[in-house]
């Protein structure tokens, strides 16, 4: 690992100051992606700004029909939260499929979403449920947040504060794991939010995306049958040593149908 300075600011304002003073500083959340990256010398930030002590970035609460989760909330806290289990069980289940239990004891929802790994799980949850990303300066909709491979709408020096999920009428996530890395080879999150049906796919392209043809078919009839036979095509799909584009295309169809069935048998709040 290269040398860097380490800061543990006490509040959001202090963290923003540190970022403003040093354009090469990087935020440190759970460190489950960043520290292995530094260890392999794939990045050389001048400083790490540890978000662990900042209370503005923590906490899970509901506000009417919204579930708000602080960026520094660790996966394990989401899984164990009675509030998440009661209001958005499909999210708790998706989080329980991230990595392994040791990663889940440290990793955070904000770190995962800000990282925007093309094979991450929670990107699909946020996109399917039309979540809102609240930062220190503005709100960004999920449709705008995920820009490209490992790239988000967050600007230099901007901090993700919390994510707000509208509570869906029904929702479910189905993941086909890459058996070696445990990331999603393909994952599909289906959600119906206020009558609006959204299908988000992760693992298959440079970034998470919505499968609009499926959404249109489901809008007419919410059933696995409605999307059967619809061809997703292979344009833009990842084709690598883990799976061919054709294999991924097939997984998208199969997992979507499974997610629909899971959402239908689940409680009103999903799976």
């Amino acid at each position: 690992m290269y040398q860097f300075q380490y800061h543990r600011p006490k509040n959001l304002a202090e963290a923003l100051d540190l970022l403003a003073q040093d354009g090469d500083a990087k935020l440190l959340a759970g460190g489950q992606t960043l520290l292995p990256t530094l260890r392999q010398r794939l990045a050389a930030p001048s400083a790490l700004v540890d978000l662990a002590g900042i209370s503005e970035l923590t906490g899970i609460s509901t506000k009417g029909e919204l579930l708000s989760i602080g960026a520094m909330t660790r996966y394990i806290e989401i899984i164990e939260s009675p509030l998440v289990q009661a209001t958005l069980p499909s999210l708790a289940r998706a989080v329980a499929l991230v990595g392994d239990p040791l990663v889940r004891n440290r990793g955070t929802i904000g770190g995962s979403l800000a990282n925007n790994d093309p094979t991450a799980d929670l990107t699909a949850a946020a996109l399917a449920m039309h979540a809102t990303f609240v930062t220190d300066r503005r709100s960004i909709s999920a449709d705008e947040f995920f820009v490209d491979l490992f790239e988000t709408a967050l600007e230099q020096g901007e901090i993700l504060v919390r994510i707000e999920f509208p509570l869906p009428d029904r929702a479910a996530y189905v993941k086909f794991r890459n058996p070696a890395s445990r990331y999603a080879l393909v994952g599909v999150f289906v959600a119906e939010v206020h009558g609006d049906i959204r299908v988000a796919v992760t693992g298959a392209k440079a970034k998470v995306f919505r499968e609009h043809a499926f959404e249109a078919a489901l809008q007419t009839e919410f059933s696995a049958k409605a999307v059967k036979g619809l061809d997703v095509g292979t344009t833009g799909l990842i084709d690598d040593l883990h799976a061919s584009a054709e294999y991924r295309a097939n997984l998208i169809s199969v997992l979507t149908r499974r997610a629909i069935s899971a959402a239908m048998i689940g409680s009103h709040r999903g799976a």
Binding site: Y6, G31, Q32, L35, P36, R39, Q40, L48, I76, D100, P101, L102, V103, N105, R106
Partner: peptide, 22 residues
């Protein structure tokens, strides 16, 4: 690569990979 778990210790009562914490 933080994948094997040989380094697990308890940090404030939870098991974590000590190779992925400063």
């Amino acid at each position: 690569t933080s994948q094997c778990g040989a380094c697990v210790v308890h940090l404030d009562g939870r098991s974590v990979k000590s190779c992925a914490i400063l």
